[in-house]
Amino acid sequence: MTDMAQPQHWRAWLLSDRPASRRQARLGRAYAGWQRFTTNKLAMVGLAIVLGLVLVAAFANVIAPYSPVEGGDLRTERLLPPSAAHLFGTDDQARDIFSRVVYGSRITLFVVVLVAIIAAPIGLVVGTVAGYAGGYLDAILMRITDIFLAFPKLILALAFVAALGPGIENAVIAIAITSWPPYARIARAETLTIRSSEYISAVKLMGASPWRIVLRHIMPLCVSSLIIRVTLDMAGIILTAAGLGFLGLGAQPPLPEWGAMIASGRRFVLDQWWVAAAPGAAIFIVSLGFNLLGDGLRDTLDPKASDQ
């Protein structure tokens, strides 16, 4: 590590055949994976888009030239076409669409992250517990999972939001409730292959409780395949959230949610097309980014499933 200044040395250290410490081995593995990942051009594009989304969301107040909720002069600045002053034009409330799209990235990121940190752990717990416990618990949990898998996701989310009341938090809850089952299936499949391995027997012999085995020795190994699946699902989550927003069930006005922006722009789509076009393009680009990134991650981390 002292030779960081010389690139050759730290590369050799990272790629060493005989890592001296666990940390070196881990970093080396990560580096090798990263190298494989960078050869995939499309995945790099995806990564760039996703990083761009994060940056835009973080610095929205710096990037956006106008307020996302307060409009300009309603008499003279309504529905202006794209120009230098308003890159994407203005909407019916005389608000700058570019600023709204920029701030909308925060909402999108909020939804995606929240759904991921709600749904993935639920799936992880259900899947690993079912897989490790086996027997009736497994049968019951997996039957519940299958039932949820057989449902139409969007319609179910719609019904949930209809009952809970419209709003971004409820949309997140509804999407999370409908998106955990695949994660449970994946975690269970991983658990089934892990549970009969010898190191689990060794841990068992040392007297570890089932909870400890599941939490400390099985769950960490399920995480990587789960991350791939979650990344691949991100685009779907964004599209569902935008769909809910479009139907007026997601973020409520004046929040600059992309789906809701398209909904408000559809009234003018025939004459002032830019109102609906810009947020839709934003959804498309971000979803594309997540899809490309997910494909790339799958190719890198899980080569056997890559040929699809």
């Binding site: 599209l239 769909g243 398209i262 025939l270 839709g280 899809n291």
Partner: peptide
């Protein structure tokens, strides 16, 4: 495939109406 998995269907519909109908 990539576009199909990434584009919001309602937006594409609106844009199609705009272009092909209007």
């Amino acid at each position: 495939g990539l576009v199909g998995y990434s584009v919001p269907i309602f937006w594409l519909g609106l844009m199609a109406l705009l272009v092909f109908y209007a």
